[in-house]
Structures are given as C-alpha cells and as structure tokens.
Design a protein around this nucleic acid. Structure first.
Length: 581
DNA sequence: GCCGTTTTCGGCCCGACTGTTTTCAGTCG
C-alpha cells in the first residue's frame, strides 16, 4: 500500500494563504480574506500537527478556525486540494498570486492588470512595464510603472527572505539607540518593534524618540557610519539601511505622546488589533497619537506605556508577550505570569570546549562561567559518534572526568562547581553512543539528535521518547534540530516527547544559540504545560557565546515561562532535588 | 469567514504614505 506523506502545517498554511489571495483577486470582502490569512498564521504557528488535530475533530479549538475552514482542511488532506480554490484557479491563473507579492501591488491592481491588460505572470508584467503599457490604466501613471520596474529588478537578484536573526538586528539596534541617546538633541530613545519583543527574527529595526531638535536627531542617524543608504531626515524621523542590509526606522514624536508611540510601534500587529478591538467596545479609539473617547472626541495622550495599558483597564504587558496569544485577556484578569529574568539563572548546563569543537579550554570556559556568577556549569563536549572529527572517545572522556575533578578542587567551592558531562548523540534506534557504565560516572548527560534527520515522524518520535526515558539522560538538547532561516527541524510529536519527559523526570532544554532558539517558544509552552522542567542553556562553543543566555531567556519569556518553570533558575541544592538521579 | 459578560447576526483597528488625483483608492505596517 502506498503511504501518502502527512501534510505539514506549513503546507496547509500555504494553501490557505493562497486561497486568501485568490478570494481577494475575486473581490471578496476583506474580512473573509483576513480570516483565511489569520487561519494560515495560526496553522503555521501551531506546535502540534494540524492534520492530526483535524482527524481528532479538534482543529476548531484553535482561534480563527471555524467549521468552514475545518471542512477545507479535510478536503485538502483527502484530495490534495480545496474545491473553492480549484474553482478560483479556473477563473484566474494561479500565477497571478505571485504577482500580488510585488511590494506596492495589491490584489485590486493585479486584478485590473489581468482583466484589462491580460497580464497573468511576472514575465507578462515585465513585458508590459518595458512597453510602458501600465500607465494607460486609470489610477496608474509613470511613477507607478517605475516603482514596479524597480521591484521586478530587485526580485531578480535576491530571494524574498530578507529577515535577519535577532542576534544580527539587536546589537545594531542597541548601538544606534545608544548613539542617539548621547546626542544633545535627544530626550528619550527606545528600541521598538520585533527587536524589542525579542522575536526570533526581525524584518527591520524600529527606533523611537523624543527630541528637543527632531531634525538634528534624524540627521545624526543618517550620518552614522553604519548607514549605507538613507532617506531624507525630517522632524518625523528618518530611515536608513545598514551595510548588512537591515532597514532602520527612526520615528520622533513630542514627549506627551511618547508612551502611545512606543506602544504602537512595539506591536505586534495582532496585539495592537486586539487591543483596539477591546478599546472600541469601551468607546475608545487607540492610535499612535493617543486614546480618543469616541463619544466626546477627547484625546488623551500618555507619556508611558503603563499609562496606555492602564487607560484600557489592563495591567502592563511585557513586550515579549505582545503577540496576540491571550495576553490581553490575561492582563484584564490580572493573570499575567511573572516572567523569568536573566538574573534568575544560576547555571548553564550545555557547553563545549576544545576537547570537541569548542574554541576555549576547559579552564577558560569554567572561569568565565564562574565570573558570570553561576553556581554550576556543565561541560558537555560531543560524544563518540559526532562524526566531524572532533568526537570524544570513551577513554578521553574518562580523562576529562579526572580533569574536572582537579578543576573543582582548584577553583570550585560550595558556591561554584563544574559538572562533568557530555552531549551524547541519540542514535537512530534511540540509544546513546556511550556505555551506561561510562554515562553513570558523569554528573550531567545532555542527549541530542545530530544525524539521520530524515526519519518518519513516528520513528523520530520513538527515537526521542526512548532517549528521554533513558534513566541516565538528564536533559534533551535542541529538541527540533531547526536552524532559523536555514532549515526546518525534523518531524516529531512534541506532545508525545513532552509527556514521556514528564513521566521520566527528564529536563528539556531551550537552546539559547540565536540560530536555534530550540525549544521554540510554541514548543516550550507545550513542554511546560506537560509539567516538564525546562533548562535554559547556551550550547556555548566559546567564552563569548555564554552571553547567548539572553536569547534563551527571550524565548522562555515569549513562552510565558516563570522562574518556577525553569530548572536552572534554582540554587544548587534545589536544582539537585529536581533531578531524577 | 469568525465570533459572542452587546451570542446565532452584524459587526469585524488605525493612520501614514503614495501616486494619482481635484477628493481619494490602494497598499502597507
């Protein structure tokens, strides 16, 4: 019997994104289009399989998924397509959908290009632009034609992925904010947008400010050495592009409405929409300029964000929570969690040295961890089958155990200890690549998948479940194997792995490497809900990357985690009590 | 199409910018 591969959440989401655009081309009301796009987002973000959820009849439990979309998912899973999408594709060439992806070209315009000029593909559009046929259309002119030509040009040299890792955006944002703060014309400067929310990736950097001389501050930004290109500075702000291609937007407003502006530009879009919907029900209208009483027309401005939220009957919401995932309801009910903070972390439990592929020695890493004020620090070099020529043989690991004992005798104390550990490979059958007799002698065992990513979901899940059930495994490392902006993680059932870890008393890590952030914030929520304690680890390969704890904290906070959810936010004695061995 | 301490219908966020226009539609964040 032929086994049909299960549709991934991404594939299902893409089908609904496309369907939304098809309906938009067809002239459907915008709310219907929005409903499909919102559904696509929810589907894509779901930590659990939408296909499975649908089979279980539970998919409508997700916000934004109703009876109609449920039926369409079923049809998609059973037949490979959605009937209404097929009908629309008979009406318009599906290639029109990609024409709408050109920035500045929306569905309304594309529909007219199709109806009036017979344009069906990007190539058709290119030809029409070259022949200057667009300007004949009412509402379009030479300028529009020029802009489209420029966008088509851009499409040629680089792909659509222009997002950057938080770790590429945040240092630039912090540096520019610092420079602007020091400028004599500035009064307040803050990072806003996805960088402030500490999202995994950023499309651009938003800076906001108040200034005694706005134009002078805007000018300071465009004259900064980081600016490769810039627009004209004005009293409203300025926009630059840095040499690594990140766009930076600076917006400047009067101090009186600074809180409104900071709130507005921190977003997210979903958070702001929900906030405004709630406000409307209370006769209020929220914008970046203030909160207007619809009845009286009176506008109140707020110097701080806390005042903005207070005016709406909400407690202050931390930026990391502002994703439209229930934080507004929680703020209204006074049920927001007290989020974990960087200062709560007492140890780092995943690191590498020159013994495997790290760049600093055991002593250097340990000294750096001690200097950070940690109470414990696990050294977990790669195991016997890592396969990049940097693996650690059982004999070498035994020597390492002795070295760490000596190190603890030398620099350790009751207030700082180094744990002899390993990052052992989880082999395809779920076993580890050291003998139990050796693992038993270690203080700390991280188990991770590094090879054979292309297994079926069932097999990969069984492999990981076997590892977390191993009595000598303390912690599951970077559970999904994803690399942000580079590769998807492997296919596995996070709920099954979380349940197994909860039963076995095994920790699961949030790997703070900014390329990984793994557990993802969605999976971290699932794992915490299953009752598993989470470790925030850096996977540092050198002293400087011990700083990546901040990205692990970012993911933890975005997952609504508190100090109580995190194992290594405990002092040594309490941490020991949590361990299964 | 979704949703409900204004439930099964009638709503569904807000403003800036752009290019094209004599007052605005489309697009975007």
């Amino acid at each position: 019997m032929a086994v049909k591969k299960e549709m991934s959440n991404g594939e299902i989401a893409d089908a609904f994104t496309e369907l939304g655009t098809l309906y938009e081309l067809d002239g459907a009301i915008s709310y219907r289009v929005l409903a499909y796009r919102d559904a696509a987002k929810v589907i894509k973000q779901s930590p659990v399989s939408i296909a499975e959820l649908t089979r279980a009849g539970r998919v409508t439990e997700l916000p934004g998924i109703g009876k109609t979309i449920e039926e369409k998912i079923v049809a998609l899973m059973e037949t490979g397509s959605i009937p209404s999408a097929d009908k629309l594709k008979a009406k318009f060439p599906p290639s029109l959908v990609e024409v709408t992806l050109i920035p500045g070209l929306g569905a309304k315009t594309v529909r007219r290009l199709h109806d009036e000029l017979g344009i069906a593909t990007l190539d058709d559009l290119r030809t029409a632009v070259a022949e200057q046929r667009l300007r004949a259309l009412k509402g379009l002119g030479p300028k529009a034609e020029e802009n489209i030509a420029a966008q088509l040009e851009k499409l040629g040299d680089e792909g659509p992925s222009e997002r950057v890792l938080l770790s590429d955006a945040l240092p630039i944002a912090e540096r520019l904010a610092e420079v602007l703060r020091e400028h004599p014309a500035s009064q307040a400067v803050d990072i806003a947008g996805s960088a402030r929310r500490l999202a995994e990736t950023c499309k651009d950097i938003d800076l906001i400010a108040t200034a005694s001389d706005p134009v002078a501050l805007a000018t300071a930004l465009i004259e900064h050495p980081l600016a490769a290109a810039s627009g004209n500075p004005s009293s409203n702000g300025a926009r630059i592009t840095t040499y690594n291609g990140v766009a930076v937007d600076l917006r400047i407003v009067p101090p009186k409405e600074y809180g409104n502006l900071l709130q507005h530009f921190t977003g997210s879009a979903a958070h702001n929409v929900q906030l405004r919907e709630r406000a409307v029900k209370r006769g209020l209208s929220v914008s970046e300029h203030g909160i207007k009483n619809t009845e009286t027309g009176k506008l109140s401005r707020h110097t701080t964000e806390a005042a903005v939220y207070k005016r709406l009957g909400l407690s202050y919401i931390e930026p990391e929570l502002r994703e439209g995932r229930g934080e507004i309801r929680a703020a209204a009910d006074g049920k927001l969690p007290k989020l974990i903070e960087l200062g709560d972390i007492r140890g780092d439990l995943h690191s590498h040295t020159t013994l495997s592929d790290g760049k600093n020695t055991l002593d250097e890493m340990a000294e750096a961890a001690k200097a950070k004020g940690y109470a414990y620090f696990a050294v977990t070099d790669h195991s016997a089958t890592h396969g990049f020529g940097d693996h650690v043989t059982p004999e070498r690991l035994e020597e390492r155990i002795e070295e760490i004992a000596e190190l603890n005798a030398r620099i350790g104390s009751s207030r700082f200890r180094v744990l002899a550990g390993t990052e052992s490979n989880i082999l395809p059958d779920g076993s580890l690549d050291y003998e139990d007799s050796l693992l038993e002698r270690l203080d700390w065992v991280v188990a991770s998948v590094h090879t054979s990513f292309r297994m079926t979901k069932a097999n990969m899940t069984a492999r990981m479940v076997a590892a977390v059930e191993h009595p000598l495994v303390d912690c599951l490392g970077h559970p999904s194997g994803r690399m942000l902006l580079r590769r998807e993680g492997y296919d596995f059932d996070i709920e099954a792995v979380a349940e197994a870890a909860a039963r076995a008393g095994t920790f699961i890590e949030i790997n703070g490497n900014p390329n990984r952030r793994d557990l993802s914030e969605q999976n971290a929520r699932v794992v915490a809900d299953a009752g598993v304690k989470i470790c925030l680890n850096t996977d540092a390969h050198r002293v400087s990357t011990l700083e990546n704890m901040r990205y692990g904290i970012a993911t933890a906070r975005r997952a609504w985690l508190t100090k109580a959810d995190v194992a290594n936010a405990r002092a040594w004695a309490q941490f020991q009590k949590l361990r299964k061995r």
